[in-house]
């Protein structure tokens, strides 16, 4: 890649926080770095991955509103977690967390445990208890 070929396709993936240094050849064939704001190919793929995440969240959201899953399932998905990661943050067994994803177990959860879930998701406890998710 030559210096003038370093892509500058801004899709706000870096949110203007910094430019990403790319290694490229200058006019004399020597390596140098050029700051890049983004590259279309990469932007497309990242956007696609985030769209997929969005679909998954939306799907879980519907299931929660329909009463099939607990709000924990929704916030887990929203925080890009799976049961494994969430269990690690909570200090619980995976199967315990799996149970908490079901509404009937969710309703029986202690205040302490709910508060810990809320803290893990960085949200208010009242929000976590809201089964309409609004």
């Amino acid at each position: 890649m030559k210096k003038n070929e370093v892509p500058q396709d801004d899709a706000n993936m870096l949110e203007g926080k910094f430019k990403e240094p790319c290694y490229a050849l200058d006019e004399n064939g020597k390596y140098t770095t050029v700051g890049s704001v983004g590259w279309e190919a990469k932007n497309i793929i990242m956007q696609d991955a985030w769209d997929e995440v969005g679909h998954r969240i939306e799907k879980v959201k519907q299931q929660v509103i329909n009463g099939n899953l607990s709000p924990i399932a929704y916030y887990m998905e929203k925080n890009l977690m799976d049961v494994k990661i969430l269990a690690a943050y909570m200090g619980l067994w995976r199967w315990t967390v799996k149970r908490h994803l079901k509404m009937k177990h969710f309703d029986k959860l202690s205040h302490v445990l709910l508060a810990k879930y809320a803290e893990t998701f960085d949200i208010e406890l009242t929000l976590l208890k809201n089964k309409e998710l609004n």
Binding site: M13, K17, W50
Partner: peptide, 8 residues
């Protein structure tokens, strides 16, 4: 960190 890059 920019949000689009923040995953686990």
């Amino acid at each position: 960190f920019p949000k689009p890059y923040r995953f686990h």
